[in-house]
Amino acid sequence: MPQVVVDVVLKPEISDPQGQAVLGALGRLGHTQVTGVRQGKHFVLDVEGAISRDDLERIAETLLANPVIEDVELHLPEA
């Protein structure tokens, strides 16, 4: 069954305290070469039958992400 992957991350101008907490923990573990962390969400959709890119964009922008604060990236299966 084809899968569509949707990644959702906070827009760059929205601060991400969870990502900052992860960054702090990495520093305490000695991984000082990591200088920034942004935490997001990763959705894997199983899709049956034909679905258009428009439909997927609508799904991503009306439910999976809140466009006020988040950006989405669609990863479609290889045609």
Binding site: L10, S15, P17, Q18, A21, N66, V68, I69
Partner: peptide, 17 residues
């Protein structure tokens, strides 16, 4: 209300977590 689009903006995780 923000998620429904009746009010502007959004509510996110508290800055101090």
């Amino acid at each position: 209300l923000c998620e429904a689009g009746l009010l502007p903006g959004a509510l996110t995780r508290n800055s101090h977590l």
